[in-house]
Design a binder for these strands. Structure first.
Lengths: 114, 114
DNA sequence: AAAATGCGTTAGTGATAGCTAACGTATTGA
DNA sequence: TCAATACGTTAGCTATCACTAACGCATTTT
């Protein structure tokens, strides 16, 4: 799994990226927001690091993870290239036909995976 | 795997969604754009259908797949809720520091998976 | 009408994703 | 200084993902 978008799309990892938007955090800090173990979170972070979406900084016995601007930029580019104008048009038409009933997604925590 | 965004993120499926942006197509037609088998494509389409991103229409011995506006709208919502302002800010800052070097992603065909 | 071709789906398999449990290591407290 | 604790990572396992091969079923073709 080296594809940026695919890596970023997994619900737990998606949430991690969002959480890190407000600044660097340690594994344990991040893990408090999830129901799965610290270990699981650590592995997600490691993968995010591997594909360049995160950076790590070690301090004492803690390890601070932070977003890597270059990676995030690359992800944005991949997203933009995926979501083309035809898809946008389709959504616009759907909104016109059925204006009120848009779902808004984003449940509170445990991104129910697979 | 029921998560819309996660399903849509897989490179082959992402490509399928893009291809279907220009109108309905049969399994075989779609398969011509990939290096993997018709069967593989069929299964990706089935999954996309299951999560509501596609609709199917049977005609003769062919089966036409098309985008499902409701599903695509839902996907868009999920994307928007993921890509929050903090991530946007980060990208903007990265661009300012390093204006020229933006990657643009989107290779031609075989979305090299896992 | 029977054989052949083309369509999409199911069966079966190897690789791997994502998890918990066990671990190593560094810090803290006595 | 030595035990206890807190942090992050590796080991090991199960579920399942993505694929090719085999299949069933229509539709042509002769």
């Amino acid at each position: 799994m080296q594809d940026l978008l695919e890596v970023a799309a997994e619900p737990h990892r998606r949430r991690l990226l969002q959480l890190l938007g407000s600044g660097e955090q340690t594994v344990s800090q991040l893990a408090t927001h999830f129901t799965v173990s610290r270990s699981a979170i650590s592995q997600h972070l490691l993968l995010l690091c591997e594909v360049g979406l995160l950076q790590a900084r070690k301090q004492g016995r803690s390890r601070f993870y932070a977003l890597n601007p270059a990676g995030v930029t690359q992800l944005k580019a991949q997203l933009d290239s995926f979501w083309n104008s035809e898809l946008d048009l389709l959504v616009a038409e759907a909104r016109q036909l059925n204006p009120g009933a848009l779902p808004h997604a984003a449940p509170p925590d445990n991104g129910a995976s697979s």
